[in-house]
């Protein structure tokens, strides 16, 4: 069973800072990491490969540094990694991103065949979760999003059953193969990489393709030109007006009384409601 995993290198949004003057993100303030959801996708691919054989290939679109994220996937156990990297891909929104990745996937399919495509639930920077379903639509295969468990795979019968997380519960859905899954963190624990993988990853050099390596590319669908959405204004989210401070020279009792009277003004909160406690 050949599994392709789409992976993205992202800035660590836990520590990224916003430049207060320009209202843009200071990317140099945060290290670039493998999108955490994609690590789970690679882990799941490696797990399935152990059961069903085949190979795990990862694919990324990004700047040359994104090779590091691919090497991280080799550490987790991926067999091969491809990076598509070209200025002509730059500025892509999700529609143009799924197009570029799809073109690379087509080329990989011609070489080897793909039974399953995995993506993360979303990337922690752009945070849309739109690329996975976009790729599936372009490949004309079913997308199964928010997967928390692969229940069953039967490569011979070309069938897969997964558990999808939905509001307040889950559903079990069956699909033919090939199909595309986007995975949640609950799907597995990313294990520590065994030493041989670490050594292999250190030496591994991902294969890099430019637009010219792909076939039948419609240039109008690439990068900024191929992107229907554009980012207009950006601003930091916090409200700037701030709170009215109830100081009372730090007299806690007075502060408490003030809060109580403020709250009690909202009478509707304290009127009887049909006897329900």
């Amino acid at each position: 069973m050949n599994i392709l995993v789409c992976i993205k290198q992202v800035p660590d949004t836990k520590i990224i800072k916003v430049n207060p003057k320009t209202n843009t993100l200071d990317r140099s303030s945060a290290p670039a990491i493998l999108n955490p959801y994609d690590a789970h996708a690679v882990e799941e691919a490696v797990r399935l490969k152990k059961i069903h054989g085949g190979k795990v290939v990862v694919l990324s679109m990004g700047p040359p540094q994104a090779k590091e994220a691919i090497k991280k996937c080799v550490e987790i156990g991926a067999d091969e990694g491809y990076l598509i990297s070209d200025r002509r891909f730059a500025g892509a929104d999700t529609l143009a991103t799924s197009y570029a990745l799809y073109k690379a996937i087509q080329k990989l399919m011609d070489e080897d065949g793909i039974d399953l495509v995995l993506c993360g639930k979303h990337a922690i920077d752009g945070d849309t979760g739109q690329v996975g379903p976009g790729i599936a639509r372009r490949m004309e295969i079913p997308p199964l999003t928010n997967v928390i468990k692969v229940e069953e795979v039967d490569p011979a019968e070309k069938m897969i059953k997964v558990r999808r997380k939905i509001e307040n519960g889950y559903e079990i859905i069956q699909s033919t193969l090939p199909c595309l899954l986007t995975v949640e963190k609950e799907i597995n624990e990313v294990a520590y990489s065994p030493l041989p993988n670490m050594l292999r990853a250190a030496r591994y050099n991902p294969i890099v393709w430019t637009v010219d390596d792909l076939k039948d590319v419609d240039m109008k669908q690439l990068g900024l030109k191929g992107s229907p959405t554009i980012v207009g204004k950006m601003w930091p989210p916090a409200k700037s007006d701030g709170a009215q401070m109830l100081d009372d020279e730090g007299d806690v009792k007075k502060q408490a009384e003030k809060i109580v009277s403020l709250v009690l003004e909202k009478r509707e909160l304290f009127e009887a409601k049909g006897g329900e406690r």
């Binding site: 800035p11 949004t13 836990k14 990224i16 800072k17 916003v18 209202n23 843009t24 993100l25 922690i124 920077d125 752009g126 945070d127 229907p228 959405t229 554009i230 980012v231 207009g232 204004k233 950006m234 601003w235 930091p236 989210p237």
Partner: peptide, 12 residues
């Protein structure tokens, strides 16, 4: 976007 660190207006 970016884990809630920034707000952006998107146009089409």
């Amino acid at each position: 976007a970016f884990g809630g660190n920034i707000m952006a207006t998107i146009l089409c």
